[in-house]
């Protein structure tokens, strides 16, 4: 890993490593509300079959995951648990915010108990809009994340710096 730390990686190796990372995403399902069922349909149903994208949806613990899908309404009572989950994941880690509630509060934009967007607590890589989004939309979000991982500068990422949005 000396090469990674010094930031001098040949481009071919970077793209090879990135490709192998993007096709082996272990995803933790942080299902909270309605969207959890659509996420279940995307990850657990034969019609949508997420494993063909190289995503493995059944890790034993957040400590073994690369990606977390926060799907559903994050309430103020739940927020500390979401943050704690994120902190337990090993770097490099990615977050998909699924559904209007996790994006911005959704239909509960004026509720007293709902956190208006999970990005207030943890950094989000891909937002999937919809209430709830169709399973196809979540798959699209995952493909977008994979494209992003492919073009990532690994040296910057592994130093723990925040990734540049392009």
């Amino acid at each position: 890993m000396g090469l990674v730390e010094s930031g001098k990686i040949p481009k071919g190796i970077t793209s090879l490593l990135n490709m192998s990372r993007k096709y082996s995403l272990w995803v933790y399902q942080w299902g909270l509300a309605c969207c959890a069922i659509e996420m279940g349909a995307a990850f657990g149903s034969p019609r949508y079959d997420v494993m063909r994208l190289g995503v493995i949806p059944l890790p034993a613990s957040p400590r073994q995951t690369d990606l977390v899908v926060v799907s559903g309404t994050v309430t103020d009572k739940m927020a500390p648990a979401v943050k704690r989950l994120y902190e337990q994941m090993p770097e490099p880690k990615y977050v998909i915010s699924m559904g209007s509630c996790a994006n911005c509060g959704g239909p509960y934009w004026d509720s007293y108990s709902v956190t208006k967007g999970v990005d207030q607590i943890i950094p989000v890589d891909v937002y999937v809009p919809g209430c709830p989004p169709r399973p196809e939309a979540l798959l699209e979000g995952i493909v977008m994340l994979q494209e992003r991982i492919q073009n990532e500068d690994m040296a910057a990422r592994w130093k723990g710096e925040s990734i540049v949005v392009d």
Binding site: T75, K77, M78, P107, D110, S111, Y112, S113, V114
Partner: peptide, 23 residues
């Protein structure tokens, strides 16, 4: 309980009747 409390009963007081059904 309460991890999924979204305050429905209070929100219905500020939504019109057709809006309540979507909520």
């Amino acid at each position: 309980m309460g991890y999924m409390h979204r305050g429905y009963e209070k929100l219905t007081e500020v939504r019109t009747y057709p809006q309540v059904t979507s909520l």
